[in-house]
Design a protein around this nucleic acid. Structure first.
Length: 286
DNA sequence: ACCAGCTCCTGCTTGC
DNA sequence: TGCAAGCAGGAGCTGG
């Protein structure tokens, strides 16, 4: 479920548990995820203290006392679970007994006794470690566009990024080089809020509408983060899982349902763009 | 240089 | 009830 709001929710959940803690050791339960893990990663992590947790687009970045940065990306199906001291997970996770969950690929052991477990059924997620000095050049980070909630994301910049683009605005917004952190759900939701058709060519949208689009993107992300935050308060009662986010979407996965725009008589449609589902209202999105 | 399509992988839902 | 097909919230890579 990880787009920007879910990743931010996970980051906020991990922050109080990880920051200030040292990693005593790390178990790599397979050779890698999308790619083999970086050589020596587990050894370099051992003994390092987590100083700070940041988010960049859909990536969580942990600044370590060792001078390295730990990168986590949840892909499509990644989850991070917190087990152990103070999490109320008594009886759920018997790691020493060998009852490791299916698809638990990386386990971080902290000095507090807490375990941070990276679980990813489809293994599209990523875990990497690199020197902080190399962050700007990191192959996963160097081409990321601006943060949608930051000041650098404005109509002038979006206009420049969309200039001469023949692709649809839907596909363009999924391109992490244009803006970092949106995925299929929030692109659909933002376009609906902005009243912009997903099939419109990116380069053909005027600056005023781009301003509306930017506002819509910010609002939908902030609403979702707020919603995720309220879910987060309960995560320990539920199942210890972070990144589980329930939200009622206006268009995503709502095919055939009436459009929620006041006075709009349209129904939500599903089409395929660049191989992925797009949901929208053809009546009020132009 | 751009862009659509393919690909990695497992699990859940749908339809016959 | 069983089974196969289709689809899933990501993103790097390939080839036109």
């Amino acid at each position: 479920m990880p787009e920007l709001p879910e990743v931010e929710t996970v980051r906020r959940g991990l922050q109080p548990v990880m920051e200030g803690q040292a990693i005593t050791h790390v178990e790599l339960r397979r050779e890698g995820l999308r790619w083999p893990f970086r050589d020596g990663m587990a050894g370099r992590l051992a003994g390092a203290t987590v100083e700070n947790l940041r988010r960049r687009g859909k990536y969580i970045l942990c600044d370590l006392s060792s001078g390295d940065v730990l990168l986590l990306h949840l892909g499509m199906s990644g989850r991070i679970q917190i087990h152990g001291a103070g999490t109320g997970q008594v009886g759920v996770f018997h790691h020493d007994a060998g009852a490791v969950g299916r698809h638990d690929h990386v386990v971080f052991h902290l000095t507090s006794g807490t375990l941070i477990v990276f679980n990813d059924a489809r293994r599209f997620g990523m875990v990497d470690l690199f020197p902080a000095t190399g962050e700007a050049d990191h192959f996963l980070l160097r081409n990321l566009g601006p943060e949608p909630l930051g000041n650098a994301f404005d109509a002038a910049r979006l206009k420049a990024a969309f200039a001469n683009k023949r692709t649809s605005v839907k596909s363009a917004l999924l391109d992490q080089r244009i803006v970092a952190g949106l995925g299929n759900i929030y692109v659909c939701e933002a376009l609906w809020r902005a009243g912009i058709s997903p099939v419109r060519k990116a380069g053909a949208i005027g600056e005023r509408r781009l301003e509306a689009l930017i506002s819509a993107i910010r609002e939908v992300l902030l609403d979702a983060i707020e919603s995720g935050g309220s879910t987060l308060r309960d995560f320990r009662h539920a199942d210890g899982e972070l990144g589980y986010f329930q939200h009622r979407f206006a268009v995503y996965d709502q095919e055939g349902k009436p459009c929620r725009t006041p006075d709009c008589k349209g129904k939500i449609r599903r089409i395929t763009q660049a191989g992925r589902s797009t949901y929208y209202c053809a009546h009020c999105q132009r």
